[in-house]
């Protein structure tokens, strides 16, 4: 049974970790479009997968996952943008939970853009 006491334990455990986070604008931001089109196209499981993968790869200190409204390219939803400091923004389109896991492992962690999921690759087709 989940108890509120457990939540207090999480608090104690997290306190120190949170204080160590980068908050200097040097973190990587992963942004998920959660407008009506995004949600209808499957953004909810994509977001959950991203949050889960970032945590699994232990990237939480330097990576945040945030939500935004309609990005304006509805036909490509679900859309995920990756903004790394000092680099060009990368836009991933027609995302799924599986693709999201790969993006975190290969791009966010590994440093190599998953070109085949980007909007550039999608437009070229």
């Amino acid at each position: 049974m989940k108890t509120l006491a457990e939540l207090a334990e999480i608090r104690e455990k997290m306190k120190g970790k949170v204080a160590m986070r980068q908050n200097d604008g040097n973190e990587t931001r992963i942004i998920v479009g959660m407008g009506t089109c995004g949600i209808a196209a499957g953004a909810r499981p994509v977001l959950s997968a991203l949050v889960e993968a970032v945590s699994k790869e232990k990237l939480e200190e330097s990576v945040t996952v945030t939500q935004t409204g309609c990005i304006g390219i509805c036909q490509y939803e679900p859309v995920v943008e990756v903004i790394e400091p000092g680099k060009d923004k990368v836009t991933y389109v027609k995302m799924t939970a599986e693709k999201a896991q790969r993006v975190v492992a290969e791009h966010i962690k590994g440093g190599k853009v998953v070109a085949e999921y980007t909007i550039g690759a999608s437009v070229a087709k």
Binding site: L7, M14, A19, V51, S55
Partner: peptide, 22 residues
Amino acid sequence: LRSILGEEVSLGETEVINWIRD
């Protein structure tokens, strides 16, 4: 829930969200 977590730890932390899911 926030009153238990206090100021420092956000409700949006993955560990907290996972707890909420359960």
